[in-house]
Design a protein around this nucleic acid. Sequence first.
DNA 1: GTCTATACGCTGATAGAC
DNA 2: GTCTATCAGCGTATAGAC
Lengths: 206, 206
Amino acid sequence: MPYLKTDTPSPEPIDCRIMSAALDLFVDNGYHNVSIHHIQQKANVSIGSIYNHFGGKEGLASALYKHILNEIELVVDDAIRAETSPIMQCKHLIRDLFNYTETHRNIIAFVFHAKHTEFLPDEPHACDSAPFVKMRGIVRQGIDCGELRGSDTYVVASVIFGGAIRMIQLRLENNLAKPLPNYLDELMEITLGGVHRNPQHIKEVT
Amino acid sequence: MPYLKTDTPSPEPIDCRIMSAALDLFVDNGYHNVSIHHIQQKANVSIGSIYNHFGGKEGLASALYKHILNEIELVVDDAIRAETSPIMQCKHLIRDLFNYTETHRNIIAFVFHAKHTEFLPDEPHACDSAPFVKMRGIVRQGIDCGELRGSDTYVVASVIFGGAIRMIQLRLENNLAKPLPNYLDELMEITLGGVHRNPQHIKEVT
DNA sequence: GTCTATACGCTGATAGAC
DNA sequence: GTCTATCAGCGTATAGAC
């Protein structure tokens, strides 16, 4: 599963080496601030090889994007398989994403911290890709079976995963003192139970 | 307040025309896909004028960034002034941001939909800028006065504003059928009251 | 398949006239 | 202050040897 190892210079297949180097450089510097020459140098390959394998810089980014979305999809599938209720699936998934952020920082950063449409205009928006569609599917089931409040899938999914994604982004920008798993329990508690201390008074403010 | 009008070609001060053109182009195409020549053409000014006023492309982006953060800060200040309780301030602010997204799309897009560190390495992260610091200040007060549950400011702020920001991003990517204000009531209700239909059972899943 | 050297276009920036 | 013409550098992509 961790096919894409970070900062491993040499003894791997060449296409993997290229993608790993590109991932690190893209995350650290941004797609447009990285040239083919940088990637070539970091991956210890020639420019020709990059063109042979990926057809150019954009093809490389596209392959990397799809590869990483597949990895995320595996994480989502695991969570769906491991739990039965939608709420438990959500919590399981957020926990795994938090762990993944700590162990595979750049993979998460590439998904949650880049604007792909600026360099991959033909790829679908991240939120329309398989893993995110599946996340909304979990939420949809939770609403239908009465476990989750609300009616609009996008709204409920935004509350559940929006808070978690925000935490991930804060962590990636080094705004959090501790690793993400330390915040998981509090995050889930107030996401599920609400931020309002006296829920019976909510009607007063809405 | 709407000093930066969108798609207004001519009868304004030159620096405003330049910033408006740059904002539209940056949002539509991404900073790195826009050249000085594009901006010059759209703003009906010369390259020299851009350099005279802003010192170059990066200086222009930096001025635009600061200008827009100031506008957002005004929105935050308005919400803080208009309400007394932190929860009401949060809801007021989210409503105004939703309206602002519909009426000043590109201003919101530039703040919530771009990765500024890729072209403004010297500017602070958006989440460290004044408006976002003030948002966390509201949350901090809410926690301290017992109105909001939770203890960590970042966690509570992520839940409250993370969901709203996620909705804004979905709207900017045309994933929502209706304008944002239509979703406000449901969003606030489940954010404040929790997504879990039976809160008394939360301990079972956390 | 892998590599090097080269060509070409574009972009940011400047110089100097008005 | 505003403008035009021009330059230098970089970055993508290709051609062709091994």
